[in-house]
Design a protein around this nucleic acid. Structure first.
Lengths: 254, 254
DNA sequence: TTTCGTCTGTGCGACTGCGCACGCCAAATA
DNA sequence: TATTTGGCGTGCGCAGTCGCACAGACGAAA
């Protein structure tokens, strides 16, 4: 809520705006629920809203004909959906699908655009975020070409873990297969390996991260490259409890 | 044109600036040669210059450890190298390598940044170009995951053809393999198929496009998607002779 | 003309992932 | 309890690509 923030703002991008812009932005935002499976943005469409996730995350995907959509990058509380508005383009190049339920600040696209025009100092963090997106896309393109399913799965699980609360989240093998652009049984095999190594546990879509450090070893370099990029360009989260705990490598069961 | 235009400007991005910006930009530019193999930009480095190719083209690539660099997108006379400066970021996320010799207008990065700051109306075309790059990256990422070598090779040849003068260019199977992120002999086989279908001819690195229409059929959808993106956002070339001729599907030998 | 380096053609076994299909099991439904 | 639904494990043959290696072919230089 604009005037009286019910929750503290955990979105790192919003937190990188200066106080004045931050307030103006929050004043035009409503805090909405992100429901699993919601399509909040259709490739090629004119943007209606922009979103700043607080919890949960959105998966940005590209579709090719005769293929299922494949994930390009994730947007959690480190970023926003609809950043291309800062390029003066009102359409969006990708589809955005909610992969983990949560909440997000939502603003009207036109109002946000107006805010960007009126407060040029606000453009800078958004521009930097666009730069991050470009880095992510390049990393993903190369990763999809070279790395194997197991490594990519580990990366995907780590990035998901970073964007949700707690160590468990709902993602079936079938969904993961879609994100990675591989078939479902390839995920089953890869996940089975990670499980038998004691890195994760799962049952009927509930995945539990047991050993982050192990996952980091099993993952391709792309995870750490991405992390480095985020941490270089974005402020650390104010609410560091959850995240800092995760960042600490550990291997606690249950 | 600045004072005395030695050549007409064929760079579509420059041509999309208004006359005043265009003049200011050209005044700070020198026309330089792009030599095959030149690395004009190193991933992660601070940008020294920006480049607007007139002829020839630059390949933007990403490297992962233990793998050869793989191409993300090309920059010919439709774009520029160093557009991320418009995001207020002075480093660059990718490496730029000259793949076809030619010439380019080169400007000092700091001067260009200053020009952007002073002439906000100039930012718009550059921002639109950044949007194109994002579209390209997403297309490439998906294409690398799903499409086969033959289709991707055809796409690559078409995009190269669009960016060079004439119907012949120098690209060995080995180079193409690097760009596509596959092994050399996979290119030999794919190229052999295209040749036996009468679409291209080649010998010792000299590739000749015989049938564009045939190549377009052999290529994945990604080529036409990319083309549509460029044509939607950029003005047509003033010097339409060469390009218009190519755009016409045909199948003339020799 | 000979030599040499580079470009291209080809073949081999191996691996990874595909597409499909079947069966098992847990949870939700009735 | 009986049935359905959805998630997961597994196996099969097959496509494509990998990694490597070697041989031929061409062009430039000596």
């Amino acid at each position: 809520m604009p005037s009286q923030p019910i929750k503290p703002v955990t979105n790192r991008l919003i937190n990188s705006f200066d106080a004045h812009c931050r307030d103006r932005l929050l004043n035009m935002c409503t805090l909405i629920d992100l429901e699993f499976g919601d399509v909040i943005e259709q490739a090629g469409d004119v943007l209606g809203h922009v979103y700043f996730p607080q919890t949960g995350f959105v998966s940005m995907v590209t579709s090719l004909s005769d293929h299922k959509p494949i994930e390009m990058y994730m947007v959690g509380n480190e970023g926003m959906v609809g950043a291309t508005l800062a390029l003066g383009v009102e359409t969006t190049p990708m589809q955005g699908v909610v992969q983990a339920q949560g909440s997000a600040f939502r603003a009207d696209a036109k109002q946000f655009q107006k805010l960007l025009d009126e407060a040029p100092e606000m453009t800078k963090p958004v521009d930097r975020y666009l730069y991050i997106i470009i880095e992510q896309l390049a990393q993903t393109a190369a990763c999809n070409s070279f790395h194997e399913v197991r490594e990519r799965l580990a990366r995907c699980l780590l990035m998901t873990h970073d964007r949700v609360e707690g160590d468990s989240f709902y993602l079936t093998h079938s969904f993961l297969a879609g994100m990675l652009g591989v078939r479902r049984s390839a995920v089953t095999i890869a996940a089975g390996e990670l499980q038998s190594r004691g890195l994760i546990g799962y049952s009927r879509g509930q995945i539990r991260v047991i050993s982050r450090s192990g996952l980091e070893e099993a993952s391709c370099e792309c995870y750490s490259v991405s992390q480095a990029s985020f941490n270089h360009w974005l402020p650390q989260n104010l609410d560091t409890a959850n995240r800092a705990q995760k960042a600490t490598s550990r291997s606690l069961p249950k």
